[in-house]
């Protein structure tokens, strides 16, 4: 009976876990600073940043998306009850080009490295 109790206790406490997954490569601020609205062409942007993740057609214009995503999961289970937190943060950059493939606007958010491991009752970013 003691062995059974120990086994149950072991099963109860053996289910803590952490996992981290990323998509694409992190964006670098220095590379984004090399882009200049009004002069940088789509070809030059690709030479600096590499191939975009997605290209969206906007009438005769276009927008290129670059992104890097980090997902951190943390949790534990007690028999059939699970407690899980998922935190997803991303680096994102959108490059807008005119009909002649000249850069008109750049928008970037670099927060891919801000994902955190946490418990579900923790609001780690204070959002």
């Amino acid at each position: 009976m003691r062995l059974l109790a120990a086994l149950l206790l072991l099963l109860t406490f053996s289910s803590c876990f952490l996992s981290r997954s990323t998509t694409n490569e992190p964006l670098r601020k220095k590379q984004l600073e090399q882009l200049h609205a009004g002069t940088t062409t789509a070809k030059e942007a690709i030479e600096i940043l590499g191939a975009p993740t997605e290209v969206i057609q906007l009438g005769t214009r276009s927008a290129y998306r670059y992104d890097f995503t980090t997902l951190k999961r943390a949790g534990f289970s007690i028999i059939i009850l699970s407690f899980l937190n998922e935190d997803t943060r991303a680096d994102r950059a959108w490059l807008f080009f005119d009909a002649h493939d000249v850069l008109t606007h750049v928008g970037s958010t670099l927060e891919g490295n801000e994902a955190e491991y946490a418990m579900p009752w923790q609001d780690v970013h204070g959002d």
Binding site: M1, L8, L11, S77, I79, I80, F83, L84, Q122, D123
Partner: peptide
């Protein structure tokens, strides 16, 4: 009690529940 606990453990694959939080991107 031991049997009940084992049954509960066995059901873990079909009956699950818990408290979940999803945080995605900055608001």
């Amino acid at each position: 009690l031991a049997l009940a606990l084992l049954a509960a453990l066995g059901c873990g694959s079909c009956l699950t529940g818990g408290y979940y939080r999803t945080q995605m991107f900055g608001p």
